[in-house]
Simulated assay, not measured.
Amino acid sequence: MDAQDFSRLAREISSEDRLRYSRLNRDQVYALSPQEKLRFFFSLQVRHAKLRMVEARLNRCLAPFSEERLIFLVGPTGAGKTSFSEYFLGAELASEEAGKIPFIMIKVPALGPRKIPWSGLYRDMLHAGGEPLIDSKRASFVQDGRLQTVPASQKSALFSLREAVVSMLDNRGTLLVALDEAFHLLRSGDPVVVMDSIKSLADAAPCQFLLIGSYDLLEFVNSYAQIGRRGGLIYFDRYRAKIFDKIGNLVANVKDVEDFGKGIRKLETRWPLESRPDFYAAREILLEATLGIFGLLKEFMMNCLDMQLKNGGKWQKGFIKESLKSAYAINAIREEVEKGEERLTEMGYGCVALSDEKVETLTKLMTGSMPVEE
């Protein structure tokens, strides 16, 4: 399957489809048609270790006492940023109260190399919030004791749409707005100007904003002084076969390999064919082949399934090589990831201002003789 096939599947599978598939037992899955089996496996969402870390960090940013109006979710291609936001957050922030929409997610449109798609962005937010008569929205204000309406001109229409968005988010009880592919906002050429506009919207709206994208979003964080170095930035990390220890030696990362394997187990136990390759046995090599990016693992398994289904359910050894990404594609992703992670290190992501020794001293002073769990 190519990128276009995956994109088509993502558009076709609704939340109702995912719920229906999640309720099927093994025999019911085996009875599905080949196309339905592909859709079933694609719909699977695994709460693996790296995703749970992102979830925990985001929950801290979303806590009632949090002052983070803007949150950035950054990660490599295929990490699972969109799936996490759309399905896990969507389920967690769901509401059964009529008219309430706690979570709204849209993709930022790209309308040109130097043009910020504000109008399209506002319209998409209003559509996601179920607003009627979007083209008729007009902002109002009080002047000399009388209610005035902004005239219907192209310039004023943008202001009216923005005010309609703020009002809609308030009326719908929205807690979080997620802007996927937020790097399209960078096309204005001035991240500070863009951030001023987004922060102004976030300050006016009664909710928080989650900007989702690749390492390009770090330009926003770097250039905008009001974004905290750590609080509003969440990295969707990958699994690593090796890491540096405290003295700088490269050693095996047993925990990541184990966690990566657990994620594989969760997927392969739902393999929709009776004949199943042993992905778990190859977990260390698969970690290397996919750069530890869980979405790339899922893509590899989808390609294996696609070829096995086309072969009448029979497995062939040749499917493995055919399912792997090309060296060119993997090298391009590796280069992007390494540059992005280098920028995160330069920004001090994951670090505190004190040395490890001072943190330890601070911990001892504050803990004292209190009984504390590790």
Rank of each mutant, 00 (worst) to 15 (best):
L175C: 08
S167E: 14
E181Q: 13
L111D: 05
A152Q: 04
L133P: 01
L111P: 00
V150F: 09
V150G: 00
R123P: 03
A110K: 10
L175W: 08
N171W: 07
K115C: 04
L169Y: 07
K115H: 04
G99H: 08
R162G: 04
P151V: 03
K107N: 14
V177G: 10
P102Y: 12
V177Y: 02
D124Q: 15
D170Q: 15
A164K: 01
D180G: 12
G99Y: 01
D170K: 15
V177C: 11
G120M: 12
G173S: 07
P102M: 11
E163Y: 13
F141M: 00
R162N: 03
P109M: 10
L161H: 03
D135S: 15
S140F: 14
M125E: 06
G129W: 05
R146S: 07
A164W: 01
A139G: 11
S167K: 12
E131N: 04
L126M: 04
F183S: 12
Q154M: 02
K100T: 09
A182V: 11
A110D: 13
L147P: 00
K115Q: 14
V108M: 10
A110G: 12
A94F: 07
S95R: 12
G112W: 02
E96H: 08
D135W: 02
R138D: 01
L186I: 07
A128M: 13
S95W: 06
S167P: 00
L126W: 08
P151A: 06
Y122A: 06
A178I: 01
L176R: 02
V108I: 11
Y122L: 02
P113V: 09
D180P: 12
R123M: 15
L126F: 10
S160P: 02
D135E: 15
V150M: 09
I101K: 11
F159D: 01
A164F: 01
S160H: 06
